[in-house]
Nucleic acid binder design. Structure first.
Lengths: 340, 340
DNA sequence: TTGAAAGCGGTACCAA
DNA sequence: TTGGTACCGCTTTCAA
């Protein structure tokens, strides 16, 4: 019988909130049971070197008294922790939420819990926030960063740091870094369009880092000549894509890559309303792999972030706490669906 | 000169990651400075009872050695913590994210940091997760819960618990509870519609708890007779509202309340496309106070969640750690904009 | 003005 | 199979 089985059998108090005050300690249990702390410890940890009779006895006492180990004390003694800090920016959008949610789930599988903090406005505040976590948190994952030198702000803080997809961070900054290569998946997408015979390819949106992948695809394509057209917009939301519909069709494009799935969605709606056939009349690709894309008509081809790979790596780093900083780049990948 | 000013001046190491291993302790500093731990403590805490010379000296040493206080140790000693647990469900939507984000910001203002955990699938797992937080977390805010008796799952855990808007939790369960009264804002909205002369009012959606407010408004209205019509849908997303447009207009309604802002948005789009004038032909009210509603054409009237009130109360409870459980209900409120 | 020392709650080495 | 005890790092009382 494990401790918690016993525990649940024994506990039948009524005024539960009164219990908050008393979290029994090993010492109290040892006194109650008339044994040493060490013996209680052995019993609860299911270690060897203790008679079954004593163990049963102690388990009962512990259960009756409502023992819950104090993790702060344990961590202090073991000089480690099962918490991971996550620093995020204040303007979170869908894709970011999916990323951090996935990370949270993976961390929990490995026995870690995320402590979240918002990126403060000044480096001093960031520093003092991270100091507050000293001793509780061995690893801090930063999803956002300011225009500061990491080495100035973070120097001598007792945690390891992992910068995730922070553009401001220089390559060899001395901290772990996880970068996302947006161009790889975009390149594959455009290449697919080119190779399937599309010749007037539009990229539409206003997000700078999307351009590179398109360039790469055109440079490496060895087929008949194809034209590359850029249609910039003011935003990257549904309605931007929708509103672009007219311009797009007037441009005689036969394929379009949108900087976000939401724009692509907007355009799909436009196409549907106007009787434009996708992908027959025009092929459509988005970016972000929003789950909704599976359910559009036709389902939306897109470029997916390496969420799983990225986050498993973060979990690994949290577990190993390896000293040497590494910079890893994960590629995005093209997902072909009905819209191309 | 405070410690951190000095600190930043002194620190100029190159291989930052090597520093992770060494978080100087009070003892190390006291040895280095040739004073007692207590004196170092006084200097760093800017307490009185220490000569200025010694203070300067110690600050310098501490800065040079890279002192960061260990919060685990501090919390252990002070028997308190500056972390607050937040348990959330796995299917988060917009409004939930806004709520928890707001809470996070408020907590940080008061010196707390959120530790997040996902609601586990079994009560045993929930319990063991919360045990993992013992000693680090004094307060746990639960935004989600299962079909379990709180008193069975949580008994004798050393934290205080705050259930937020969990429908399954009975009124007097012995734990803090924060409930949201959805009917109050809805009632005001419908009443406004009735009083401004609307006589065929549709409620559209499939979310059960929205009905009560509508009922209340009709019951308390003492004007000319008005008709209450329900149009149910399969969902509560943009497209559901959009798709309802036709039915809605055929019903000759002159006002409509949607269960979500997203549905209302969808309908506004329909109306815009069809040349239906809002609010002249039909008044529209949504629910959730999504920020986007400010930017629709016309701007969307809606019912707002009591996010600020709710979360300030949670922060207060976290600070006071008052023993007696309280159950508070916060009303939602009607926000009038152009669409009515 | 300074310092010794007793905790906070667990862990684990070393003796008995 | 047991128990005594020295930590982990910090706070604070009390005495010098």
């Amino acid at each position: 019988m494990t401790f918690y089985t016993m525990y649940n059998k024994c506990q039948r108090w009524r005024e539960y909130w009164k219990v908050i005050k008393m979290a029994a300690t090993l010492k109290q249990i040892s006194e109650e049971a008339g044994v040493s702390i060490r013996t209680v410890n052995r019993a609860l940890k299911e270690q060897t070197g203790i008679s079954d009779v004593k163990r049963q006895e102690i388990l009962e006492v512990a259960a009756r008294m409502g023992y819950i180990p104090n993790i702060a004390a344990r961590n202090l003694r073991l000089r480690k922790s099962n918490f991971v800090g996550i620093v995020t920016g204040t303007n979170e959008n869908d894709i970011f939420i999916r990323k951090s949610h996935d990370l949270q789930q993976r961390l929990e599988v490995h026995g870690f819990f995320p402590i979240s903090g918002l990126l403060q406005t000044s480096p001093e505040m960031v520093r003092s926030m991270l100091s507050e976590w000293a001793g509780m948190v061995d690893t801090v994952v930063l999803f956002a960063w300011g225009e500061w030198l990491p080495e100035d702000v973070l120097v001598s803080l007792p945690q390891q740091f992992i910068f995730v997809d922070c553009k401001q961070i220089p390559r060899n900054c001395g901290f772990h870094q996880i970068k996302i290569d947006r161009s790889s998946g975009i390149k594959d997408a455009i290449l697919f369009l080119l190779e399937s015979g599309r010749s007037r390819i539009v990229r539409s949106g206003n997000i700078g880092d999307r351009a590179e992948g398109v360039e790469k695809a055109f440079r490496s394509f060895r087929g008949e000549s194809a034209e590359k057209i850029l249609i910039e917009t003011g935003g990257s939301e549904f309605e931007d894509g929708y509103n672009l519909g007219k311009t797009l069709m007037e441009s005689k494009a036969d394929a379009v890559f949108f900087d976000t799935d939401r724009m692509a969605f907007g355009f799909l709606k436009y196409a549907w309303e106007k009787g434009i056939r996708v992908p027959d009349d025009i092929a459509v690709v988005g970016f972000d792999d929003d789950p909704w894309g599976n359910y559009s008509c036709p389902s939306l081809s897109t470029v997916a972030h390496p969420i799983a790979e990225m986050n498993s790596r973060i979990v690994e780093l949290s577990e190993r706490r390896s000293a040497a900083p590494e910079a890893i780049i994960f590629p995005t990948r093209f997902i072909k669906r009905q819209s191309v």
